[in-house]
Design a protein around this nucleic acid. Structure first.
Length: 106
DNA sequence: CTTATGACTTTCA
DNA sequence: CTGAAAGCCATAA
């Protein structure tokens, strides 16, 4: 198979779209769920190039770094992400998402 | 095919 | 706790 639907990026978007409101997943977890144990950076790349059209229906803000850290990057991204998560009831502890409470297994 | 890139992660000092 | 260094991956050029 080699259609766009099989592209790694598309699979990342599809999985991110399944993250429930009020919950978060790490880049590494998403990569692992896609069968790429150490593809965290690739997941980050996928979200970095996330088309604005898809962004509207993709809860990209529910993807955080290991330990619940908001991935630092240029622009207002981090601030927006933090605000959206808080509006969903996600709790932060010491500037990091409380993974024990909002992580995939929490 | 070879390099470069980046919204990562882990390890070590 | 901080920060640097190295490892890893899918893409782009």
């Amino acid at each position: 198979m080699s259609g766009e639907g099989d592209r790694f990026f598309s699979r990342v978007y599809a999985l991110v779209r399944r993250i429930p409101r009020g919950r978060v997943a790490t880049y590494g977890q998403i990569a692992a769920l896609l069968g790429v144990t150490r593809g965290a950076r690739a997941v980050g790349w996928a979200l970095r190039v996330l088309p604005e059209a898809r962004a509207a229906r993709t809860p990209w803000h529910r993807v955080v770094g290991a330990g619940g850290r908001i991935a630092p990057r240029g622009g207002p991204g981090p601030q927006i992400q933090r605000r959206r998560l808080r509006s969903e009831g996600v709790r932060f502890v010491a500037g990091r998402v409380d993974m024990a409470r909002h992580g995939l297994l929490g």
